[in-house]
């Protein structure tokens, strides 16, 4: 199965480039929310395609690599959501101020329910 090996090589190269782009994104972006955008979306795609590429190159490992891919697809957006929420509650504002704050109303109603 030579063709599977070439697909795997392509996926591994694509994934490593996306991981590099995610790391450059967390270095270059101006504030926490932009860094979250670069640092979790790009690395989710990069890690999923690199691990799937290894699974294509070694077809006996495909089941366990699929388990890893599914785990990363669930866990990475979840941790990004929790990080954005904690940054908001830690009073960090975005660098662009246009007066739009859609989470404020929900946050206030949550606070009043707690009290």
């Amino acid at each position: 199965m030579e063709i599977l090996k070439y697909i795997g090589i392509g996926l591994v190269l694509l994934g490593s480039i996306f991981l590099l782009l995610g790391a450059v994104g967390i270095y270059r972006m101006p504030d926490v929310y932009n860094r979250l955008q670069a640092g979790t979306k790009a690395t989710t795609l990069g890690a999923m395609s690199l691990i799937l590429g290894v699974g294509f190159m070694e077809p006996e490992w495909l089941v366990k690599t699929l388990i890893l891919v599914i785990f990363i697809g669930i866990a990475n957006p979840l941790s990004s959501h929790v990080l954005a929420r904690s940054a908001y509650k830690n009073n960090q504002m975005p660098i662009i101020k246009n007066g739009i704050d859609a989470y404020k109303k929900i946050n206030d109603s949550e606070k009043s329910e707690e009290n």
Partner: peptide
Amino acid sequence: IGMLRFIKGPTASDRVVALDTISIIATA
């Protein structure tokens, strides 16, 4: 590059974002 942001990051949230990215890179 992720480690540079982890060292430099002005607030704690930046450092946690960098830690998340670094752990994903380490897994891959």
